[in-house]
């Protein structure tokens, strides 16, 4: 303290003070200022407002202007979070063509910006799961082996052993996962869209979800044995045995039995 006191009026003090102040202001500004727009950032008030307009124009006929849903038609969206919107709208499932338990994936009706605005609006209605970060869904950081163990215990019964999809009751089905983006896979687990149950972060940890993504991505390199035949199990194998195997062999027997010209 004495040293400091002696130097109290050092002649460079004002300069240091000015530099320090500048640094402080810049730092605070960096923290306060909006970073470059990404899907994972807090939405601005304008986004929420734009999202509300989009919602009123495209979603409110089923979900209601207040987004509280209608019994038997559409669920309330309070508390479903941005992740749910990003999944449902981003995969083209919403808006739905007709109300029903199976929402079909199709080309998204909105651009990335509009989806972000809708997500921002719905997220503003009540706390819910947010859109995962790029790191959270980066399969290359995951452990595919653990992913395999989690996938086959929690996912394979509906989506097939390597993501080929499968049937549910009454015409519903679990879609194939070959084309699904990692973000959408993550969001689906988090939010439990349509028939799918919810796999919250306590059930399958964020790391576990990333492992599952890693496992699914490892399946996209093809099958070691050749063509994968849809990876739907012995039924397609049987069909090919008859069509190609028996078909070709019987064709050859006809040639063997025919008289040469």
């Amino acid at each position: 303290m004495q040293t400091l006191a002696r130097q109290r009026y050092h002649r460079l003090t004002p300069l240091l003070l000015v530099l320090g102040l500048l640094a402080l202001i810049t730092g605070v500004a960096t923290i306060i200022a909006p970073p470059p727009a990404t899907a994972n950032t807090e939405a601005s008030a304008q986004d929420v407002e734009a999202g509300q307009k989009l919602f009123a124009a495209n979603c409110a006929s089923c979900h209601g202007l207040d987004a509280r849903g209608q019994a038997g038609v559409a669920p309330s969206l309070h508390g479903v979070g941005a992740a749910s919107v990003d999944f449902q709208v981003g995969t083209g499932r919403m808006p739905m063509q007709a109300s029903g338990p199976q929402a079909m994936a199709k080309a998204p009706q909105f651009g990335e910006k509009e989806i972000a605005q809708l997500a921002a609006y719905v997220a503003s209605l009540g706390a819910g799961p947010s859109i995962p970060t790029a790191e959270q869904v980066d399969g290359s950081l995951g452990d595919a082996t653990n992913g395999m163990l989690l996938y086959r215990n929690n996912c394979a019964m509906c989506h097939g052993s390597v993501g080929g999809g499968g049937a549910l009751t009454e015409g519903k089905f679990a879609p194939g996962l070959w084309e699904t983006t990692p973000t959408h896979i993550y969001e689906a687990m988090l939010t439990g869209p349509q028939s799918m149950p919810v796999f919250n972060e306590a059930n399958i940890t964020p790391e576990g979800k990333r492992d599952i993504i890693a496992y699914l991505e490892a399946q996209r390199g093809g099958s070691p044995g050749g063509l994968g035949l849809g990876a739907i199990g012995p039924v397609s194998e049987g069909l090919w045995a008859w069509l190609i195997g028996i078909g070709l062999i019987v064709g050859i027997t006809v040639w063997v039995g025919a008289r040469s010209s």
Partner: peptide, 21 residues
């Protein structure tokens, strides 16, 4: 406990719509 890692499950972990094996 969770299948396959064997960690126990709290009631609070099981949110509505969740399914645990």
């Amino acid at each position: 406990a969770r299948d396959p890692d064997g960690t126990p499950i709290r009631a609070a972990d099981v949110t509505i719509g969740s399914v645990f094996h």
